[in-house]
Design a protein around this nucleic acid. Structure first.
Lengths: 207, 207
DNA sequence: ATCTTATGAGACAAGTTGACTCATAAGCCG
DNA sequence: CGGCTTATGAGTCAACTTGTCTCATAAGAT
């Protein structure tokens, strides 16, 4: 069939993207060159050039190949849902693939318009998901004195990003409780509504 | 005097580091090569090689040349002091130089031991400063139910880092109030102790 | 079996990297 | 100010990388 792609093309592109992704994870964006990707993928250098004529295309496609964190549709009660989502986000941000793309996004966004666009899109998506969840919580009466919706991503994700980039290691339940508390006052019936007392950090499982 | 450096050496090194810093700010770490730095600094390529035989050395020295955010010694009442420090930190994190080094640190830390060390040192320094301030606040009776000291940097700096890297733009006073609130309960007499009501974001001046 | 199309080895030109030589000039010292 | 030391920088060189191209080979479809 004319619109079924040639299996050789499919095979080559998958091998190339997988190799690019590996190099990105192991050594960062500067390692994603046609020569190194061809060697790693065990394909001809010309094949890499044929599919991706410019190195920036190869890098951005390799980055796009990595599933980035997102939130599932919110559910009531919102607080335990959000707690789980933040826990999941913390775990995802610790994954080498996700971390590689995250750092490449923030680094590349400073000078590459295409990467700036991708970063903005990711921030917009995750921000909207969070705002929708907080709005739902307010409407359900779970949340009072909510923060400015524009500040929600920074308040709820910022600390997890900080941990991921500057202090890698397990993220405690206490920290996640604190994030939720920073977003506003949660009513009883949706878990703890006051700041939790200081207690020992509980280690969390990591992949 | 034998230990007074040759002014030619001083002049060359300053020109080279300034050029490296500019390229780092404008295009990121991959632009900091001997060839490009020599051209920008208007010195001989051999001179750059003589002072910095390997490109990693040049990059890390250029990064070290940029003053990174830090906190001044805490003062009581701690809360207004911390508020000012966080405001200052937000402003510094928006500076192109600081942003360039920040992104280079988190990117490079993934695969370069020397850069990992620098990142860890920065995180340790700023964390200790914060912990000292919060301890002082607790001892002065300003702060109750303080967060786990290990979580303080993530809670207080994380949102500012998030803004800097993923949502550049002015940081509101409201957001900074929220960070302080996340760190614990502040008593009356050290500014607002309850979560602030939602109010319009106040634009802040940026350099 | 035949035709179409993707692949890949290798060649080529141009550029980059790292090391080196040596002429020139900056800087110090008496 | 002359002599000596030392830093600089233009240019060279080998090795490597990048991007493009050719063409033989083989995969895939019919």
């Amino acid at each position: 069939m004319a619109d079924t792609p040639d299996p050789r093309v499919t095979r080559s592109r998958e091998a190339i993207l997988a190799a690019a992704r590996e190099l990105l994870r192991e050594e960062g964006p500067s390692a994603v060159t046609h020569q190194r990707v061809a060697a790693r993928a065990e394909v001809g250098r010309a094949t890499v050039y044929r599919h991706w004529p410019r190195p920036e295309q190869l890098l951005t496609d390799a980055m796009a190949d990595v599933p980035m964190p997102f939130f599932l549709d919110p559910a009531t009660p919102v607080r335990p849902w959000l707690e789980r989502q933040l826990r999941m986000l913390a775990d995802q941000l610790a994954l080498p693939d996700v971390l590689a793309v995250t750092t490449a996004l923030v680094q590349g966004a400073r000078s590459e318009p295409q990467i700036t666009t991708r970063r903005d899109r990711l921030a917009t998506t995750i921000g909207q998901q969070l705002r929708a969840a907080l709005t739902m919580a307010e409407q359900a009466g779970e949340l009072q004195t909510a923060c400015d919706p524009r500040d929600a991503p920074a308040l709820l994700i910022g600390p997890l990003l900080y941990r991921s980039l500057l202090e890698p290691g397990p993220v405690s339940d206490d920290l996640i409780d604190r994030l939720l508390h920073a977003a506003g006052t949660w009513t009883a019936g949706s878990a703890i509504s006051n700041p939790p007392a200081k207690r020992p950090t509980s280690p969390t499982t990591e992949l």
